[in-house]
Amino acid sequence: MSERTFRIWRGNPQDGGDFVEYTIDVQTGMVVLDCIHEIQKQHAPDLACRWNCKAGKCGSCSMEINGKPALSCMTRMNTFEEGETITVQPLKTFPVIRDLTNDVSWNYQQNKRIRPFAPRPRDPDGEHRMMQEDVDRVQEFRKCIECFLCQDMCHILRDRETQQNFAGPRFMVRLASLDMHPLDTDDRIQEVRDESGSGLCNITRCCTEACPEHINITDNAIIPLKERVVDRFYDPLMWLMRKLKPGNSREKTTVE
């Protein structure tokens, strides 16, 4: 057990805010979220924060801990130096509601803009058949817990002006999961370029580093999609082939 000091951002956009210091006793094995709950119990019952599963599965408790976007339920206290003050604040990319909560509704709007899954018909016996090796990659993308840490980390989204033109890493992953889904029949490449702004990503890989589910966002989702866009719109040979065989333009991005 040791005494630890936290600096937590308190306030809201209407009244402004500032960091407030709290000191609590920390027990073996505690994570930052446990400490926030202790602070609520002992010092500040109205301290606003989101959480649910406390096991890294729901992606609710995203915040910035010592300046780094992280899930507070998976950030162990023994990863900090002894005596180090821990600074906790809301995500910087999205508007603050109060204390540690952000308005993340923009992300839900992006999701809704993506056209829904459009499966091919079932086999005559009523089954859908897909091989495990053909769905491995899609399953990697579907591990996403929508914590939006990648969105918080993405410098295109941090800049409010460019934010309007790029759906962000989370939704590139979602588009990739649809595009590489063996059953999906929709052609999403134009959407990837025009609606979601794939060209804006300049592959700094910050999103991949931030992902608590260790999804290889940049290499496995964004780059293959960018390549598909290039093949479709900027490769003269492909362009000619489409002109010659217009009815056969649908091609899936395959998994290597």
Partner: peptide, 18 residues
């Protein structure tokens, strides 16, 4: 359960793809 597949769910597969 089968209906979920039509809505995009990707379950683990058997050797024959079910």
């Amino acid at each position: 359960v089968r209906e979920l597949e039509d809505w995009g769910a990707v379950f683990d597969r058997t050797r024959t793809g079910l």
